[in-house]
Structure formats: structure tokens, C-alpha cells
Design a protein around this nucleic acid. Structure first.
Lengths: 201, 201, 201, 201
DNA sequence: GATGAATGAGGCTTCATTCAT
DNA sequence: AATGAATGAAGCCTCATTCAT
């Protein structure tokens, strides 16, 4: 009752589960999954451990949620871009740039993604791998389509092309700084451009 | 008694410090730094805790050694390649391919590198960052040299080009499998080729 | 929606308190009192925690109810048997056999009885001890009656005779299996026979 | 250094593992396995948790040790008694009385035995069951030998006879008090006598 | 050079119970 | 009559490091 005097954090007074997830995401990105204690999470979220375990089965569950949220988001956006009826080079460029912008906008998620995947339980790890695979294949299909129709070079296997681009996307969390000289969109344009130029026949 | 009948691991009967480092590298790559206990390391190396702490000041020291070894190796190789008097596009191609081959040959080190950097003590972290920066700059110098001389496009800032390529290098530990269809050299040639093609004016 | 399609458990759609008690009895016997959580009980009974605490003051209350029910049942049966006007050896044999059959028919209760008594609150523990004592005394009175009238040997103190028999009754939950070679009645006859034979002058 | 001023407990200054086991046995018997916390054990033993886990893999291990110790002891004694060349009725009487005396002398172990077996891990539970079975069979062999040679009645299956007797042994921990009217040996003689009388042809 | 027992802090998780609705 | 979110205490266990030998 009365008014709480200090708002601990997270979207002011957001529902508890969301608050926990937001806080956990930030802390996992800042110091790594293993270095983040459940105690720290609940303190930062202003709830008790009991509350956390009321909503999440384990610390691992929390991590899995971060992955699930990110994968859902990326898959949706890729599906939308790939389904347009623009020429394949435009669709690939759009997809390549979009994933860069989205990744920069959720850099914490990205950092967690590439650092902490092996900290998931084996079972959840497999699940995430499978979803990631679907995403990769959708993207690869675009490259292959362009290769078949002759607008992209066939010098490099499509799989390798996809891994080439996604390496640079993953790497963003290592070097991109919001206060750097380039906006997310500029970075995205440059990286998409590099990809498309590499694919010129 | 007498001669040990079973060699625990590591280069057969290598000196204790090397054996510890080899074992630690493998375990850190397999399960992550935080998930690897000192007890597991000494057991796998066939020594006791006292021995480990005799040679290394802390668990963190062990991790730092992995980084130092890798950075030394890569810097040496890049310096050698870059110092040749071949045309700049040949030097860049050689450097880009060489780092790929070296990374694949030491995939455990690479995996540790991108996953566990934030688990170093702040002090050692800074040291590694600084060395990494030197490496990056040496590589960037090659790109800039080519851009100035007109053999590479200037459409993309050299920094971004370097990060683009190194993203794909880091990513190798995520997808490369020794039993896959491509040899390390083939992967290296493809990735260097993609970089050079992207840089065509 | 509409009518529930699956009945969670317990006598089909029995009143909530009975359902809870039945479920708790089974779970306490299966995994022990301390290893059974209130959450598991309410889930198995298809109700919520609030409902449980509406009918029972605490988890301990639930355990106490199991004891009370069992003690009531056994006391009633013993009173009935002992009050008959058959010869004392017939009455003792009937009582000895009856408690065996009843125990086998409620093996869960018996298992809980001997394993979990010390998990009752001190207060309820005393209550149960007192009722148990009354039962023991009633049974002992039969032995003493036979000893006084000369049909039973006086070689062994009556108290010890009672404990001898009840040891074997308690032990039933450890070894008796419904799918074994002997029916409850056969086991009961054998054990009563052993008691009576031991008491032959 | 200096002299420790307070000796926490257990045989004064006994080796740590023994001290832990002695303390754990007492506490498990007093309040049950689940109600005894590791914290309480180490405090009573005057060591830290780390020390406990240096010697025992888990709390469950501690419990298992209690069982192993008791089973070893009982099996040894039964083997010794059964191997004598006295007449079978003397050997059975000796065995029956001996297990009673031994049980009373280690009443804590006995209490734990019958109350906490189901709290062992499934794996260790099986192990204990198997050893217990061997003991039971050795004892049963004595009964069968007497039945074959005609000194014991064959009215009751030997298995049931053994369970009858061991029920009363288990039950000892429920009612026997050191300050009661009967010495351990007297109780033992009475119980062995009851068994032998029940077996008279 | 090397041992390994012991520490002490901290980690994740469980749970009976309460209370506003 | 019943809900279910939230509490707060306690539980078991792990681990990097130290130190007397």
C-alpha cells in the first residue's frame, strides 16, 4: 500500500515477469550468464527470489526466454522481407540490412546470444539450434535463388556466404557503440553493401 | 609404483605447466571458463591443486595465458605476411586467408576468445583489448593502403571492412567442423575471396 | 470449459477434503511426508492451495488426519473383537489376525505410520502416542487374561508379547506385496498362528 | 594453534570423517534424515561444510554410510553364529538373540534403518536392499535347515518366520528404552524364546 | 616442488504459508 | 468457497584459494 518510494528498475511498475526478463537480459549482457546471480537479478528487479521462481522454472529458463524472444523477432522479420515480390537482390539487401539494424537495436540480446548459448541446458540448446537453423536456411534460400537466376556469383557456396554475413552480424556486439560515428542504419547499409558487392558475378 | 602406467593426458609426459595449459584450453572450450573447476583441470592433467598454484597465480592466469598465446601467434603471422613486398591485394588476401587457417587449426582458442573475454579480470581484459587493437590496426593498414592506391573501393570505411572480415573469422568456431566438406584451406580461400571481391572498386 | 473432461484423481468427484486426504495419503506413503510438497498434493487433487488451506490448517494437519483415521479404525475393530464372548485364545487369535488384514488393506497408512510419526508436531505426536497406548493396552489385556487363566504361557511378559506381534504387523509394509503368493488372510492366519503357538504353555 | 577451548563433540578430537558420521547418525535418529540439515551436522561436529563435502559426496552419502556400517556389522555376526557346529536350534536361538542385542546397542542405527531407507537415492537404495536380502536369506537358511531336520514345525513358510522375527527387531527402536526394566540381553532372550517356542513342532 | 585438507563465501532452488481479491 | 501471486527462510552444494607439512 501507500506509494512505493523507490522504483527499483525496469519499465516503471511493469508486470513482474517482464521486469525480471528485462533486468536479466541487461545483466546477462553486462557480466555474462554465469557471473550473474539470481540474487542480483531479483534485487535489481525489486522482487524476491520466490517471485522469480513463481514465474520461471530456473535461471536457465530465463536465459532461454531471451533466446526465444530474439529468435521469434528475427524469424518474423526475415519472413516478411523475403516474402515481398521485389527482385532477389533487393530482397537479400533488405534482409541483410534489416538483421543488422535489429541486432543493433537489441545489442544485449545479441551479446548474450553468441556468448551464452553453450550455457543453456542441452535440451534447450538443441531447440535453439534448430530454430537458428531454420533461420539460416531461409536466408540461404535467398542467396541460392540469386545464384540460380544469375544475379549472384556462384563462386562461393551459399552456406558459406550466409555464415560470412552472420559472422559480421554477431561481431557487432563486440565493437558497435551507440556513441560511435555511424548510425545503425548506416552500418546496416555498409554491411549489406559489402555482401552484395561480394556476390557480384 | 615405479613408472606410471597410464598417462593422464596432454602431450605425453609434457612438462607440468604445458600440460595444465593444454588441458585448461580444452576444458574452457568445451564447457566454458566458469563451468570448468580448478579441480577438473588438475584431475585431467594428472596433478594436484598445489602444483597448479605453484605455476599459475590463479585460474584467471590460466585463461590469460590462452589469450596471450593466441595473440602472440596471430600477430607474428600477420606481421610476416604484411611485411612481404607483394602487391597489396596479394598481401591482404594472404593475411585474410592465413588468419582463417590459423583459427581453424586452433579452434579451441578461438572459441574461448570470443566467449570468455569478459571473464578476464578487468586489468588483464584491458591488456588483451590493447593487443587486439594493435592487430586490428595492422590489418586495417593493409586495407587503407589498397584504398589509397586505388585497388580497393573506398565505398566502405576500412574499420568496417576489417570488422566485417573478423566477424566471419570469429564465427568459424560456431559452425566449422573438421569432418565437414571443406578443408581449412578451402574455407580460407573462399572467405578471402569474398573479402577481395567485396573490395573490388 | 463446460464440464471438466478429465477427473484429476481420488474417488471420482469426491468432496474436496476427502479427495485431498486420499491424495495426500498416497503421496506420503510413496515418497515420505517431507518429500511431498503441498503443491504436489493440490495438483494431484486438482485443486488449488487456497482450497487446501481452507479445509486444513496446515500440512501437518493432513498427516494428523491420516493417523486419526487409522487409529479410529483399528480401535473400533479391536474393541469389537475383544468384546465377544468367545474363549480368550479365540479372541486373541481373531484380534491378531484382524489387525494384519486391516493393515494390509491400508498399507499406505501403515507405511506412513511407522515412518512419519516423528514428523508430527510435538503436540499431535503426543496425542497419537496416547491413542496408540490405549490400543496396546487393550491388546495386552487379552494376553494377560489368557495368562491368568492358564491357557497362555507366562514365560514372557505380556507387554513384550504385544510388541513382538506388532513388530511383525508394522513390518508388513516393508515386505508385503499384493502380487505375492499369499493373500492377506493367509498372511494373517500364519502370523496369528505363530503368536498363539509361541504362547502355548 | 594454542589449545582449542571448546571441544564440539564426538569422540574428543576423533578424525573428522568419523566425527561427522557419529554426529550425523545421532541427528538422523533424533529428528529424521530430512529434518536434519547439513548445517546442523557440521556445527555439531565443529567443522565447516567444505570439510564435510571434502569427505562425503553428499548428504545422501552420509546416510548410506550409516547403512553400510550397520549391514557389515550384522552380516559378520550372523555369519559367525551360523557357522558354528552347534545344533540348529541353538544356532537359530543364538542368531535371533544376537541381532536383538546388537540392535539395542545401536538403536540409533536401527531407527534410521527403518525410517529413512526410502530417503536414499534409488541407486543406493537398491544396493542396501540387495545386502539386506543376503542377510535375510542366511537367516532363513537356518529356519529351513531346522524344518528339514524335523526340529522346527513346517506349519509356517520360512520366509514368513524370518519376517516375523525381524519385525520385532525393527520395532525395538520404537519401544525399547535403556532405562526400562529389561536389559538388552533379557529382551533378546525373551524374543529368541518366543521365536523358538513358535517353531516347536 | 608438491600435497590435500580445510575454509568461507556464495550459488541455485524449494517450500509452507499468507493475503488481497 | 477459492484463487494464485508473493514472501522469506532455509536447504544442499560448489569452488577458488590457502597453508602446514
Amino acid at each position: 500500500m501507500a506509494a512505493r518510494t523507490t522504483e527499483p528498475e525496469g519499465t516503471h511498475e511493469a508486470p513482474v515477469p517482464q521486469r525480471l526478463l528485462a533486468v536479466a537480459t541487461r545483466l546477462f549482457a553486462e557480466r555474462g550468464y554465469d557471473r550473474t546471480s539470481v540474487q542480483e537479478i531479483v534485487e535489481a528487479a525489486g522482487v524476491t527470489k520466490g517471485a522469480l521462481y513463481h514465474y520461471f522454472g530456473s535461471k536457465d529458463d530465463l536465459l532461454h526466454e531471451v533466446y526465444a524472444r530474439m529468435l521469434r523477432r528475427q524469424q518474423q522479420r526475415l519472413d516478411a522481407v523475403a516474402a515481398s515480390d521485389a527482385p532477389v537482390e533487393d530482397r537479400l539487401r533488405a534482409a541483410a540490412a534489416d538483421v543488422v539494424v535489429t541486432t543493433i537495436e537489441n545489442l544485449d540480446d545479441a551479446m548474450i546470444f553468441f556468448r551464452s548459448m553453450h550455457q543453456l541446458s542441452p535440451e534447450k540448446f538443441k531447440q535453439v539450434r534448430a530454430e537458428r537453423r531454420r533461420y539460416h536456411e531461409r536466408f540461404r534460400a535467398l542467396v541460392e535463388e540469386g545464384q540460380r537466376s544469375g544475379v549472384f556469383s556462384t563462386a562461393t557456396p551459399a552456406d558459406l556466404v550466409v555464415d560470412y554475413h552472420f559472422g559480421s552480424v554477431h561481431h557487432l556486439s563486440t565493437w558497435y557503440r551507440a556513441d560511435g560515428p555511424l548510425t545503425p542504419q548506416q552500418v546496416a547499409d555498409h554491411l549489406a553493401d559489402l555482401l552484395l558487392r561480394a556476390l557480384r558475378p
